[in-house]
Amino acid sequence: MKTLTVREALREAMLEEMHRDQNVILLGEEVAEYNGAYKVSQGLLDEFGAERVIDTPITEMGFAGLGVGAAFNGLKPIVEFMTFNFSMQAIDQIVNSAAKTLYMAGGQMGCPMVFRGPNGAAARVAAQHSQCYASWYAHCPGLKVVAPYSAADAKGLLKAAIRDPNPVVFLENEIMYGASFELPDDKDFVLPIGKAHIEREGKDVTITAFSICVRHALEAAEMLAKEGIEAEVINLRSLRPFDADTVLASVRKTNRIVSVEEGWPFAGIGAEIAAQVNEKAFDFLDAPVTRVTGEDVPMPYAANLETLYLPSAEKVYKAAKAVCYK
């Protein structure tokens, strides 16, 4: 085992996969000479040269589409969005061109590539730079959508995403970039896309979360444990394919579930989980499926309002207590 930050783990995943496969290239704003707006691609230009690590103009729709074309013609591009907020400029290329081509081509050709970058709220960057795209992209068949929490998640899932023959949307989190975690010291450490991970076992209530919200969920579980409530914390890791089996098995055990996400509640990941639990584990529920989400407003700038907007360990703790009727 070794200890890395999430940022270093992402970098190491790209470094190893670019050594492994000559057709993997990285493109995006500031990825090369600047070494990445958030330093995720530190040193990759020196390692692989300007042919494979490409600084793009600020032209999201253009370079996302260009990545799709490069994938059609034999390369395996990693397209970095400086943040996923800017991917809205490119969403037609991600959904209409990348996700749907395999189906529209009757399986003849697909689009093996990765769209990655930080997603969700950073700190104090307000409405246009603080949005979670998990449910937007998870909505679309043809895409795989992954959201790592730890450094191990980051490395194992990014390597899997790069090797995957399908387009993968890889949602990182800026606040988590500096967090350190232990992970296996192994070049072939890959985590399967589509499998959730039980971070903490418990029998009283299930808490599902992804990305930074896993941290809130684990903190809430600590608080609950002090009161004798054993929470099972599931790190979803992958939103599409969604590991319903792991979530449903947990609900059948605990009979209660709280879903946590930063995105808006309406038609969010929690709404989907509620629907699936309702359809497949209705008889096991002892309390309504409950959601902790970002508030249903654009992200405010003011520090106090931002705190009110975001999910937190405290909010998760309260929701878990409520479904346990305690």
Partner: peptide, 18 residues
């Protein structure tokens, strides 16, 4: 989608060059 094929074609050209 009108125009979407233009960056895609440009990316195919990038792959030709690569």
């Amino acid at each position: 989608i009108v125009g979407a094929q233009v960056p895609i074609g440009t990316g195919m050209a990038l792959a030709h060059k690569y």
